[in-house]
Design a protein around this nucleic acid. Structure first.
Lengths: 343, 343
DNA sequence: ATAAATCCCGCAAGCGGTTGCATTTTAATT
DNA sequence: AATTAAAATGCAACCGCTTGCGGGATTTAT
C-alpha cells in the first residue's frame, strides 16, 4: 500500500510519533530532525492520510453545506453558485473541505444532514437558507455541532450565529428608491413566503409604503417561481387591474428577467411603462436590455463571512453567538425611470 | 463522548464484531441477534462513525469534483449547477458524498486535487472539463485513482473513461439548422479554444460549412467571455464588416443573452435581422425575448452518468474503460428565422 | 447416539495517525 | 565532574470500526 508514517519513521531512524510531530510542525522537535524527516518524506512520497488523522483527532476539517433542498432547483438561482464561491474562498484559505447535501426532497436533505453530523463527517455546518418549520436547524441546535446560517433564524434568534443582509431595510430602500422617482403604485413580485428572505423583503416593501401613508394593496402583490408561465400570468393580472402599478420590485434577478420578458411580450416597455428593481446584482443583471437596477446583497461575502464565522466557532469553542449583517447597496441599471412630471 | 460500537456491544451482550456485522447486514448474523442489536442501537442512539469506517475500509464513499478552476467563474455558467445536480442525484442514491475543489487559481485547484487524492479523502474523481495542458488529468492517471471526466480527453483518449456530447456533431447540426433556414453567412461566437468543448463546437461549425462548400471566414469568428463589454465589441465588429452574418452560433445560453442584448442595443433585432442559436438549453433560454433556440446538451444527465460510471469504476475494479456519449437535440425557440425568399 | 456439515459469533490484529507521559539526550549551572 | 534543568524523542494506548480465521453450538445425516 501507500507509504505511511511508520515507513517514514523507519527510513529516517526515528519514531512514528516524531514523524507525526514533524507533520504538525511541533516546536518540540529540533530543526535538525525536522529537516531530516521532511527529506525522507519527500523521497518516499509520503502523504498524510486524512481518514486516520480525522479518526485520531476527532475532526474532519470539512464543513457541510445544507443546500435549500433539491440542489437542482436552488442551483438555478445565482444565489447558490455565488455563495458557494464565497465559502470556497475561505475554505481554501483554512484548508477545509466542502461537502454538499445531495438530497432532492426536504426529507432526504434532512437525512443527509443527520448522516453528516452523526456520522462525524463534518466539523460544522452552514445552512444556506432560513425557513419556518424546517427540521434542520432545530436538529443542529440539539446536536450541539457548530453551525451558522445565512438568513435570519425563525426561532432562537439570539442563540444562533447567522449572517444576513438587513432585508427589511434593503427592501425598504429599494421601495424608497422607487418612491423618490415618483412611483406610488408599486408592485411586489415575491416567491411565496416559504423562506424568510422573502418575508423580510415583503415587510420592508410594506414598511416603506406605510411610512409614506400609501395604502398597501393585495392586488399589487404576486409570486413567481422561476417559471416563465407564472411571469406571464402575473403580467396578465397586472393588465386587468384598474390602476396598474408603474413599478415592480422583484425578489431576484432571475425573476426580474422573467418579468422583463413577460412585460415586453405584452408591449409594456421597461422602464418607460414600468420601472423594475430587483435583488442580488448577479451577472445576469448586466446582460439584460435594459440593464437591471438591482440591490447588491453581496452574496459572495455572505458566503465568505459565514464560513469565516463557522471556522471561528469550530476552532474556538468559547466564541460567542453573533450576527453579522452584510450591507446592501442599490446598483443602478437602466430599468427604473422617474415619473415626476417636469415643469 | 458519543456512543460507539463497543458500548452497543456491551449493552447487547455481544462482541463488537457482531455489532459491526449487524450494521453491514451481514448474512452470517441471525435475525434474532440482529433485532436485538438494532434495538440497543436505537436505545443508545448509536450512529456509525465514518472516519473510523473509512480508515478501516480504506475508502471514503465520497467523490471529488474538480471544478474548472475558480468556482467563482465557472459557477456563473449554468453548466456547473446543473452538472452538480446530476452528480448529486446519483450520489444520493448510492450514499456517496460530494467534495468540491475550492481553489481559485489553476495551481490551487491542482493542489486541492492532490490533497484529496493522496490524502485519501475521496474514492474517485470527476473532472468537469477537458483542457489542454491541464495538470490534473495526467496526475490522476498516474495516481491510479478511479476517475472520469466530462469532455473529451486531450491525451490518452482510449485509456480514460469519459462522458461527453458529440460536440462536433452537435455544432454541425446547429449549423445545418441555420443553413437549412437559408443562412450562409453564419458567425460563431466561442469562448476561446482553451477548453475542448469550444474547440469541438468550432470544428463542427467549420465542418458543416465545408460540407456545403461555404468558405470559412475568420471575420465571422469571435470570442466572448461572459462580459457584456465583449459582446458589444463583437457586435460593433459585425457591423463594420461588409457582408454581415445573418445568423450566429453562441457556445452557451449566457453568451447568447449577452449577444442578444448587445444586438438589440444596436437596433438589430432577433430573429428578424439576425438568427441566433446557442447551446445548453438552460432555464435562461426560456426567459429571453425571443426565447432561444438552443442545443440541449442534457447537462444533468452528463453529471448523472459521470457519477454513475465513476461509482461503477470504484466498486468493480475490473470495469473497462468506456466512453458515454449523451445525445443532443435542438430545442426550438424563437430566435431563428428562415431567410429563404418565398415565391 | 455419533459424526459431519452448518451456522453464528468472538478473538484479535489491523487501518494510519495522535498525544500524554516517561525517558533519554543535551545544555546549563555550580 | 557532578547536578539539575530544559529540550528532544520514544513508548504505548487510543480513536472506532472491519474482517479473516477459528471454535462452539446447533442441525442434519447416518
Amino acid at each position: 500500500m501507500s507509504v505511511t508514517i511508520k515507513d517514514v519513521a523507519k527510513a529516517a531512524g526515528v519514531s512514528p510519533s516524531t514523524v507525526s510531530r514533524v507533520i504538525s510542525d511541533n516546536p518540540n522537535i529540533s530543526d535538525k530532525t525536522k529537516r531530516k524527516v521532511r527529506k525522507v518524506m519527500d523521497e518516499l512520497g509520503y502523504h498524510l492520510n486524512y481518514s486516520a488523522r480525522n479518526l485520531a483527532q476527532q475532526s474532519t476539517k470539512t464543513i457541510g453545506v445544507v443546500v435549500k433542498h433539491s440542489v437542482q432547483k436552488s442551483m438555478h438561482n445565482s444565489f447558490f453558485p455565488e455563495v458557494v464561491a464565497g465559502i470556497s474562498a475561505l475554505c481554501s484559505k483554512y484548508d477545509f473541505s466542502i461537502s454538499l447535501t445531495t438530497g432532492e426532497t426536504e426529507a432526504e436533505c434532512f437525512d443527509d444532514v443527520v448522516k453528516m453530523v452523526r456520522g462525524k463527517r463534518v466539523d460544522g455546518m452552514i445552512v444556506l437558507y432560513s425557513k419556518e418549520n424546517d427540521p434542520v436547524v432545530p436538529y443542529l441546535t440539539d446536536s450541539g455541532i457548530p453551525f451558522v446560517m445565512i438568513g435570519k433564524p425563525t426561532e432562537q434568534v439570539n442563540k444562533i450565529t447567522y449572517i444576513d443582509n438587513d432585508n427589511v431595510q434593503a427592501a425598504e430602500e429599494a421601495t424608497n428608491y422607487l418612491l423618490e422617482l415618483g412611483h406610488e403604485k408599486i408592485g411586489f413580485i415575491g416567491e411565496g413566503t416559504e423562506f424568510e428572505v422573502g418575508k423580510a423583503r415583503l415587510n420592508g416593501y410594506m414598511q416603506a409604503l406605510k411610512n409614506k401613508d400609501i395604502p398597501i394593496e393585495e392586488r399589487y402583490m404576486y409570486d413567481v417561481r422561476f417559471e416563465m408561465a407564472e411571469g406571464r400570468k402575473v403580467v396578465e393580472s397586472l393588465l386587468e387591474i384598474q390602476e396598474r402599478p408603474t413599478a415592480l420590485i422583484t425578489i431576484n434577478d432571475f425573476n426580474a428577467l422573467i418579468m422583463l420578458t413577460a412585460l415586453q411580450e405584452k408591449g409594456i416597455s421597461v422602464p418607460q411603462d414600468m420601472s423594475l428593481i430587483s435583488f442580488n446584482n448577479s451577472t445576469i443583471s448586466k446582460m439584460t436590455n435594459p440593464t437591471l437596477t438591482t440591490v447588491d446583497t453581496q452574496i459572495f461575502q455572505l458566503g465568505y463571512e459565514s464560513a469565516n464565522s463557522l471556522i471561528e466557532l469550530i476552532n474556538e469553542s468559547t466564541t460567542f453567538v453573533k450576527r453579522i449583517i452584510i450591507p446592501t447597496m442599490i446598483v443602478e441599471g437602466a430599468s427604473c425611470q422617474s415619473i415626476i412630471k417636469k415643469n
